[in-house]
Write a protein that binds this DNA or RNA. Structure first.
Length: 583
RNA sequence: GCGCUCGUAGCUCAGUUGGAUAGAGUGUUGGCCUCCGAAGCCAAAGGUCGUGGGUUCGACUCCCGCCGAGCGCGCCA
């Protein structure tokens, strides 16, 4: 429809140019937008305002000239000039009502498109360190990423969802050593647990599994484990304290034995995370191991490639990547003077690998605290010869958690946090998923746990679900009363009151709103849309009876309601929220 | 100090990329079930869009300064 109006306007402008009423080649994008006020028609264009100055005519006069040249069209009932010079278009009702049949025919495909056909996109999200269960802070990225992936798939992209498992770093060694120390305690050793170790109960669970399955195979005297270890906080340095403990664990157990403990902790937590996410309605296509990058020589390969391209130099015994050549604020170390490659080097290799796997577009969803990291990763891609813009980083702001009116800090280390699982069990999957994607991802968000728990019935998700349930209820009523409903005999032209007009228009907007949400990576636009749709529906429901004696009208209204239900389902489905038939 | 993300109704947030009288939810105050589900509807009240300039037919939106909030600036991951 937009396109039709656009063409009409373009044609009128060409005619004006030819008759020299306006100067040639003003070359402006014609904008056609849906109107918000029904009094302003269905669509409006501001061409006359934009062209007024270059054409040297007052906007309203120009608008009149354009309207005078508009070709007749069955789709348009009438055209009006309003305000400072807007041109408002009123769409013929027969045409707008045809959307109902289109929705009922297309079913769960309505709103989708083939915009992204043939384009491979990877969405990487969550990727939390497997050092503990996911907490509510991870929920936002999980819900956002999953919804974005659904949206992209819906508009035709070939989407792969990936979780990057940080299984190689120091944090993991702290976890492995924490597990081993708890295990020693279970063996009967007396231990002063490091303040910087992982103190959550889940570490006890893993240690217990180890003890149950392996007996005392890994037992060493506590005195040896703590031999020559730097003092812990507050007397000493808590960071060195754990590092020394890690070194002792390695030395006492030997590499192979240490690995058994380490891998048990790792595998257990990855399983926990995978299960938590699955229960949250989020499933990944690929779990990519950081450790595999080194094992398969990809890190060395990436560094060599940077070297070959001339972006690497040595200084102070370390190897540096000249990221400042690509706008980064300083150069970055890729190999330390002790010979170890940095986390950044792994990330370079990881991103290189993503593009080697053939993705046209790579979307990373990161917590806002990682924003400073973007320039160097993009720099590395440019240096490797890729198009840096094909990597897109979407930042998700933290949710501030409030409980009892106070902001609560969460720490995986101390074990003090609310898990994603607890949240879901408290408020339910639908409310939790909806809550997270309700707001724009870059917006700082306050998450009131008490409100979420105790007044979860206030969650706006129920407003949408209720609309759906009401429609299903009407259909049940018809069945109980033995009323046959047929969309074939419906006369959609009877849907002529203002509520119905508004509702039909809202339905017709769904595909473009979905596309816009996908292209802008803003799932909350779908939420806003669905709320508007539900609002129009509830107003209509309160103002009119559906089950009336006039079969032509009854069938038309029920067809419209069925179309609303279909769009609600399609929208909720994108967010991983159910559309119940009863509540 | 530099950089990123922000600042809109009492509270939580939208605002279709520069358009018409800045909108929802929640809270407050009224009204609506003899009727398909009141988890709903209708109405009222509530605003210097942080602030001061600039750009233009037109600014919540774009540019600059200032104030305030969160985050980031390591041979950590």
């Amino acid at each position: 429809m937009k396109q039709i109006i656009n063409d009409l306007l373009a044609q009128a402008l060409r005619e004006l140019e030819q008759s020299s009423q306006i100067p040639p080649r003003l070359g402006v994008d014609i904008q056609v937008t849906p109107s918000k006020d029904p009094g302003q028609g269905d669509f409006a264009s501001n061409v006359a305002l934009v062209l007024a100055k270059p054409a040297g005519m007052p906007p309203r006069e120009l608008a009149a000239a354009i309207v005078g040249r508009l070709a007749a069209c069955d789709s348009i009932d009438r055209v009006e000039i309003a305000g400072p010079g807007f041109i408002n278009f009123f769409v013929a009702s027969a045409l707008s009502q045809s959307v109902i049949n289109r929705i009922l025919e297309q079913g769960d495909r309505f709103g989708g498109s083939a915009q992204g056909a043939g384009v491979k996109v990877q969405v990487e999200f969550v990727s939390a360190n497997p050092t503990g269960p996911l907490h509510v802070g991870h929920g936002r990225g999980a819900a956002y990423g999953a919804t974005l992936a659904n949206l992209l798939a819906f508009v035709g992209y070939e989407v792969q969802k990936e979780y990057y498992v940080n299984d190689a770093g120091r944090q993991m060694h702290i976890l492995g050593t924490s597990t081993w120390l708890r295990y020693l305690e279970l063996c009967g050793e007396t231990i002063d647990f490091p303040s910087n170790g992982y103190q959550g109960d889940y570490v006890w669970d893993i240690a217990a599994t180890l003890h149950r399955e392996q007996g005392e195979r890994f037992r060493k005297p506590a005195a040896q484990a703590f031999a020559d270890v730097c003092a812990d906080f507050p007397q000493g340095d808590k960071e060195r304290h754990v590092d020394d403990l890690i070194a002792n664990a390695h030395g006492l157990l030997g590499e192979d034995e240490y690995r058994v403990v380490f891998d048990l902790a790792l595998d257990t937590l990855v399983d926990v995370i995978r299960n938590d996410l699955h229960a949250f309605g989020v499933d990944f296509d690929c779990w990519f191991s950081e450790r595999s990058l080194g094992d398969e020589g990809l890190i060395e390969q990436a560094i060599t490639r940077l070297q070959d391209n001339g972006y690497v130099y040595e200084e102070g015994g370390a190897l540096w990547f000249r990221s400042t050549d690509f706008g980064d604020e300083k150069d970055r170390v890729v190999r330390r003077d002790n010979g170890q490659t940095t986390y950044f080097a792994s990330d370079i290799a990881y991103h290189m690998n993503k593009f080697e796997r053939g993705f046209d577009k790579v979307i990373n969803i990161w917590g806002a605290d990682h924003h400073g990291y973007i320039p160097r990763v993009k720099a590395s891609l440019s240096a490797l010869g890729y198009v840096a813009d094909n990597l897109e980083v979407q930042l998700v702001q933290f949710a501030n958690l409030f409980e009892n009116g106070e902001k609560i800090a969460m720490s995986t280390r101390s074990g003090e946090f609310v898990t994603l699982r607890q949240l879901r069990e408290d408020v339910g999957l639908d409310a939790a998923r909806f809550f997270y994607v309700m707001r724009k991802a870059e917006q700082h968000m306050d998450f009131d746990l008490d409100l979420a728990r105790e007044q979860s019935s206030d969650n706006p998700v129920y407003y949408l679900q209720y609309a759906h349930a009401r429609i299903c209820s009407v259909r049940r009523q018809c069945a109980e009363k033995g009323i046959e409903v047929s969309t074939q005999t419906a006369n959609l032209l009877r849907l002529d009151n203002e509520h119905e007009q508004a509702l039909i228009k809202q339905l017709s907007l769904f595909p473009e709103r979905v596309e816009s949400a996908a292209n802008r990576r803003e799932p909350h636009l779908v939420v806003n849309y669905l709320r508007e749709l539900a609002n129009h529906f509830h107003s209509w429901y309160n103002a009119h009876q559906f089950i009336v004696g006039d079969t032509e009208l009854r069938d038309a209204r029920i067809a419209l309601a069925a179309a609303v239900a279909q769009v609600l389902r399609n929208g909720l489905n994108l967010m991983g929220v159910s559309a119940p038939e009863k509540m």
